[in-house]
Design a binder for these strands. Structure first.
Lengths: 339, 339
DNA sequence: AAAGGGCGGTGAAACGTTTCGAAAAATGAC
DNA sequence: GTCATTTTTCGAAACGTTTCACCGCCCTTT
């Protein structure tokens, strides 16, 4: 900018005024400056600007895994929204690891991001500390966090799983295997509650042997399914609480020589783009990813626009059960249901 | 830092020296400073540091679509690699749009990223200009760019498609439909060349009506397939040059009342994590995403480590044909091939 | 003709670091 | 005890912006 000012024989203040439109600059000078900018190929240094202005027009976004299609889609929507608003997005993947998450959030805050969207991982205590000491707005995505009172966008997980399990019960299933991630994140907790609630509403027992834990990955779904299928009295249906794990479930069913839905019914959380093309077409709980991404972005953009003091807003969206052909009616009930 | 210096009764220079370890600081002062840092909760301002140092420890990464599983995986690997090296990653999705790409690259350069990884889109001319005027290292990912002489990581696309088409020919297919994206990016060009080469090697004609263009999206694959299937003499196999489009192909086949592989064989570029679990199990060209991501990251990290003057390096990796059950042997040849 | 009011332009301070040369202190050699 | 040498500490400039107070100038108005 100094060079531009010299070339145009004006002061840097005038160049700044013209570039930012913060003051009127006479036509002659404007022209000289614009010419100089072109000649020199001047680009404003956003770092220096950020230092002075205290704003980077960058937000931080942390998700557990970008390869989980749910997060992929949400990240994509969020990225687009901030792109439109002239913000850059720094993406971090925490790999469901608490320390990684802490490091990355600190990294983002050091870089003075203007806002933070986090699909948190692990215990809320540390996150709470970090979030409170930083004075940037934070939006929690997909996962609420006890004690952290800030804008949040989540799904009504309990209801969604309740509907899915109730559907299986209506089909005649009585022993329904359930594969969950660890309970330290709210969706897993709430989804489990939906499972419980549905069984209890139907007067069925909640049997511990039918509930298996995994660490969100395909291999965990595989192992959990193997365990479920080798039970003495094996379940007739399996619900997987997330998307990567259900791939493992399908592989385990295949490897053990069974087939879905003939021998075992399968449903899961999170829809896939290809779920109604390949066989079996999985029955899933579909999250409104577009809406989730947009609402999340809007909450943060609203804070960034200056609305700092409004009380925390919590948005709860509804999932939708996508019924396909991976669950079959069982026994006598079959007729009445499929009719 | 000023506050820390005052609280510890030292100069800011000493604080800086201690934090960065750039000079030895006596034990007493060290202790006073560390205490002050804790008391105040001081965090170094990375923006001010960047301004002074001329380095942001941030890289920019632009890809066409993050929802394309190939890019999702590669982005994930790259993100991890830079995370380990202490760099942040700014992610941009260009949506296969040239103007968006230009804007985003400019945005990234304004923010003084230390390096750039771009899976380019559209014509290379503008990119070339941008890349040359910026003095940051650039690595081209997945797509070479005429006239831009810089580090590049690509697949041997022609060979990979040659192998795939040859496989179909060996199965007895003679009329093989081919769905491609636009030729302004090198992979589409090279893959088409592989298709041509395979047909010619087998003495088969390259028929224009069997080649359809799409814009990389599912809907394009759907439309292209619809056209292919309504040809008077319809193809017995279809190869889709990217991953999202093959979903459209499968939907079109279903909607038209045909089934794969009984009525029509299908193969495509890019593997899916679930491709060997659901039916039909697609025969695909699998890219070594882990290697691609790592090599790309390594090339850039090497430049960032100071190796600026080495001549441009071009890495070409090999794809692998994953033969599954979505392509069936045709006619008399079937016996000899499957034997 | 003098005073008041816009308007266009500018100099310089500030943002929070790093770094360099110099000052100050400590150490060692005689 | 003095001088030379090494070690530790510091002041101040610099990075590239924005912004604020101020200064002329010209146009009105009285």
């Amino acid at each position: 900018m100094l060079h531009v000012a010299e070339a145009a024989r004006v002061s840097v203040a005038t160049v700044s005024a013209l570039i930012n439109g913060t003051a009127t600059v006479s036509p002659e000078l404007s022209q000289r400056i614009e010419q100089a900018i072109r000649d020199i190929g001047y680009k404003r240094n956003a770092i220096a600007r950020s230092l002075k202005m205290g704003t980077t027009r960058t937000i931080g976004l942390t998700v557990p895994h970008i390869t989980n299609p749910f997060f992929t889609d949400v990240v994509s929507v969020i990225q687009q929204a901030f792109d439109r608003a002239g913000y850059a997005v720094m993406l971090c993947c925490t790999d469901e690891d608490l320390n990684t998450q802490d490091d990355q959030i600190r990294l983002l805050l050091d870089r003075m991001v203007d806002g933070l969207i986090v699909a948190r991982v692990g215990d809320g205590a540390i996150l709470k500390g970090i979030v409170e000491s930083a004075n940037v707005p934070v939006v929690l995505l997909d996962r609420v966090c006890e004690g952290v009172d800030t804008d949040t966008v989540v799904l009504d997980n309990q209801r969604a799983v309740f509907d899915a399990i109730t559907y299986l019960i209506d089909l005649g299933h009585r022993r329904i295997g359930y594969i969950t991630g660890t309970f330290d994140i709210s969706p897993m907790h709430d989804r489990m509650a939906g499972y419980r609630e549905a069984l209890q509403a139907a007067g069925l027992p909640v049997e511990n042997e039918l509930v298996r834990f995994g660490n969100f990955h395909e291999v965990d779904g595989y192992n959990a399914t193997m365990q479920l299928l080798s039970l003495h009295d094996r379940p007739s249906a399996i619900f997987s609480a997330n998307n990567p794990m259900v791939i493992g479930t399908m592989k385990a069913i295949r490897d053990i020589g069974l087939s879905c839905p003939q021998d075992i019914s399968v449903a899961c959380f999170d829809d896939f783009p290809w779920s109604d093309v390949f066989q079996p077409q999985l029955t899933t709980v579909s999250q409104p990813v577009q809406a989730i991404g947009e609402q999340t972005a809007n909450l943060l953009l609203d804070r960034l626009a200056g609305n700092r003091d409004a009380p925390p807003r919590k948005l709860t969206l509804k999932g939708r059960l996508m019924i396909r052909n991976s669950c079959r009616p069982l026994g006598a009930v079959a007729q009445s249901v499929s009719a």
